Amino acid sequence: MAVARPAQLTIRNIITAFSEYLSGKAVDSPRLSADLLAMHVLAISRLDLITEPHRQVSEAHWQAIADLVERRGNGEPVAYLLGSREFYGRDFAVSPATLIPRPETEHIIEEVVRRFSGKGRFIFADLGTGTGCIATTIAAELPDAMGIAVDLSADALAVATANARTHGVADRLLFLNGDFTSPLFRHTSLDCIATNPPYVSEAEYAELSHEVRDYEPRTALVPGETGLEHAALLIRNAQDWLRPDGIFIMEMGYTQAGPNLSCFGDAQGIWHGEKIIRDLAGLDRMVFAIRSRN
């Protein structure tokens, strides 16, 4: 079913029509989706949307927005339709080759900035970089940071590289097409590992919204049956890659704190300061540890 065309094409009328259409579909935030797609096509701000409800919209603009709204109605994420998503105050290009950045991942940035701000030059790795939002943001927030961003997908790395150029930090980042579960780095060569690896179990994946299952790359979400497969390998590799006092911070599923903390405990004497960082919803979201000196 196509979107019903209003008799008069004004901003208010088309937003109402698009919101009503999306409300009848199984999509998240129908009104917000309508607003964002209209703003994108019309090249206007949210303030314009509110203060100029009677502004006329051309037939061409109506059709362009309607085409996007119908795709949204089928479940395609708004970020892919717009080609971008905001992360830590910056816009990042996204594509179907990349996971869409989530607000929860910003806690990684906060912790790294808190640990390294004003401390001078340091080298970090972002493993499973996707859009490059972690690597680019760390480099943008900390001018002394030098980073290596790793991803198995060449298409994702192309997006990440473009994002680093957009935000003026490409000269301090190296983009590496590789498998972060393999021995990529020299012994004690890194000061920080900041990573959002795949951590969704097969059972959890089956229950995800179809907007995620049908559009976002499965390999960026699911590492294996339990969802813990990559985490265990990363923690094991990190104890070799990190320098003494180097930090490890990794996003995880909210039920995975116990198994991930036990990985640090199994490596007796190698780690200290292990902790869980919760997201704004109060859910366990990051695991953190410091490489010991011995």
Rank of each mutant, 00 (worst) to 15 (best):
Q256V: 00
G246W: 11
Y254I: 00
A238Q: 07
R236D: 15
P244W: 01
R236T: 14
A257N: 06
L242P: 03
N260D: 05
W241T: 05
A267Q: 15
P244H: 00
Y254T: 03
G258K: 14
Q239A: 13
I270N: 04
L234M: 12
Y254W: 14
Q239M: 15
G265H: 14
D245M: 13
H272F: 13
W241A: 12
D266F: 07
Q268A: 12
A238D: 06
D240E: 14
G265F: 08
R236Q: 13
K275Q: 12
Y254K: 04
N260P: 01
G258D: 10
N260M: 10
R236A: 15
M252E: 05
L242D: 07
L234Y: 05
I249T: 08
N237W: 07
I270R: 13
F264C: 06
C263L: 14
G253I: 05
L233A: 14
Q268F: 11
H272N: 12
R243N: 02
A267T: 05
W241G: 06
Q239F: 07
S262D: 13
C263I: 03
Q256A: 01
M250C: 15
E274R: 11
G269F: 02
K275N: 10
Q256I: 00
F264E: 06
M250V: 07
R243M: 13
G265M: 08
P259I: 01
Q268G: 06
D266W: 09
R243G: 04
Q239E: 15
P244M: 00
S262I: 02
P244L: 00
Y254C: 11
A267M: 15
N260Q: 11
I247G: 02
Q268I: 13
I247A: 10
Q256N: 00
G246Q: 11
A267G: 04
F264W: 08
C263Y: 12
D266L: 14
G269I: 00
Q239T: 13
Q268R: 12
N237L: 13
Y254S: 10
F248W: 02
L242A: 07
Q256M: 01
A267F: 06
L242K: 04
